[in-house]
Write a protein that binds this DNA or RNA. Structure first.
Lengths: 299, 299
DNA sequence: ATTGGGCGTTGCCGAAAACGCGACACGCGG
DNA sequence: CCGCGTGTCGCGTTTTCGGCAACGCCCAAT
């Protein structure tokens, strides 16, 4: 892609904030990178970056320019994808941004299923928080987002929204295991292990117990889902997760998960979305449809 | 604009339908043009043009590619415009496609008024038929369209739609001059001069008289508005025009125009539009707003 | 106050890409 | 059959690009 190299360079400079680091990332010398930037600025008639002592920073004009540049790159990728699709080659690339809860079970299964049919399609998976989803889409850092968040109106185009109940996870032989109509108060009779703030479900839990008298500090916090599971399996502690992030019995026999009464904790929403009014590359579009189908059949 | 030269070349090839003529138009040799095309096709992984013995023709993949290319060019122009606007330079270019009826009076007055404020903005004005407006916008051949057409839903984004009555134009001393509540039957008592088919108002007239008993062939047809005016001024013939295309008394004192009763001839619609979901360059956007304001104040 | 390391920038020169020229092969119409 | 116009390719020249090294600058640590 000869005519896009300038755009790639400018994108790299904007991302890294420095000409030299962008050059290193692109396996080039700083002088080459700086010349391309200078040429582009000359063509545009304006500087795009403000030069500081520790690097460069996007200008007012640069903010507009970087949007243009990324739009160009994304649209070229889309054209390539459509051309390849027209030729029946079925290759492409999809980058997904999703909440931590989707990482252990749901997303890998879906990607594996998709790649069974389309082995030539490669994936990027990036953990992303709900609040940053819109920005990541806008900057073309990801094609698709799949995040759980509060019931607010997202700032991106929602392709599908599915309500997500919160479930409690505990050891298989836990006294509460298998109980139906589980109340939050019952759970808080046992030690509580929670994911760190910022993870899916944590905000929902904090909100639920904020006005309860039985609220207490968790005995364990972790940003490792695996560790939380292991801890819960080995002790009588209880942890929480949105339903799609909890393992089924066939995925982890040490643990069972029980739905919590809806009056106690407001469920979140699982949002599947893309950039506003963007025509996705073919591979990304197909994967989006598969995800939507899978989510619809989940209930 | 170094990185767009390939796009310009491909656009030229698509427009002219031949590598050699595109080369001539760009003041280059055919070999250079052919190499750029070949390189681009190699990068894309597919041929964009089908080679025939009398030139080249867009391929299935080429139809997608040419849209992409023109989108790129238009968006780059928009970025340039916004950057220039940010610097306060206020230069730019606007290309307008409009019906023939707008050419004599309305559009030149508006452009002159706009250029009074923004002398650095240049204009292209192209006569266009209503049916081709959508295609011209889609191919980025024009930024704005201002056309009269039947009351159907246009295939572009309508910024403003204003109903247009049809008026009869006759000599100043014509027996019908100054009559209010003029009926079409009265006009057809005199010789009729009409613009050629395809011009604004002609289709409306043909439709109006198609079921009337007094319909008759026009004594004069012309594609020159000036000639029609001169003929009407010198004889007792009558011609028709949508209201905005008829001269006011201060513009041509030889001619007066009288509105025709709305029961006789269905007025057309004057559509001011742009390409669907396109962010126009600043200059074009401002001119669009001025046109909308002028049209709204017309009544 | 000095010094060192990071940054963007620039002159220079070899490498690579683009260009123009001319010639070729092919299809079509006279 | 030939002439015309088309796309295409090889070759030498011109233009552009990229790496190297050096410079000036700013800031922080000495």
């Amino acid at each position: 892609m000869k005519h896009l190299v300038t755009f790639r360079i400018i994108d790299a400079i904007a991302r890294t904030g420095s000409i030299r680091s962008a050059a290193e990332q692109l396996s080039q010398t700083p002088s080459a990178v700086q010349r391309r930037l200078q040429n582009y600025e000359t063509e545009l008639g304006h500087e795009i970056f403000e030069r500081t002592s520790k690097g460069v920073r996007l200008n007012a004009a640069g903010e507009m320019a970087i949007g243009h540049v990324r739009h160009m790159l994304a649209e070229t990728e889309q054209l390539n994808s459509r051309i390849a699709d027209l030729a029946g080659v079925r290759r492409g690339h999809v980058s997904v941004g999703c909440s931590q809860a989707l990482m252990p079970y749901f997303l890998p299964a879906e990607i594996a299923r998709y790649q069974d049919d389309h082995p030539e399609v490669s994936f990027d998976v990036e953990v992303i928080e709900h609040g940053q989803a819109g920005a990541a889409l806008e900057a073309f850092r990801v094609d698709i987002v799949l995040v759980v968040g509060e019931k607010a109106v997202p700032d991106y185009e929602v392709y599908l929204a599915a309500p997500q109940r919160v479930v409690a996870m505990m050891a298989r032989d836990h006294p509460l295991a298998g109980r139906s109509g589980l109340r939050l108060r019952d759970c808080y009779a046992y030690p509580i292990a929670l994911p760190k703030p910022g993870f899916s479900g944590r905000a929902l839990l904090d909100q639920a117990v904020s006005h309860k008298t039985f609220g207490k500090k968790p005995v364990l916090q972790s940003n490792s889902f695996e560790y939380l599971k292991a801890h819960v399996a080995a002790t009588d502690a209880i942890t929480f997760q949105v339903r799609i992030g909890a393992p089924a019995v066939e995925q982890d026999s040490r643990i069972v998960s029980c739905e919590i009464d809806g009056r106690d904790v407001a469920g979140g929403m699982l949002y599947l979305g893309q950039r506003r009014s963007r025509a996705l590359p073919v591979a990304a579009s197909r994967f989006l449809e598969q995800l939507a189908l899978a989510l619809a059949q989940l209930d």
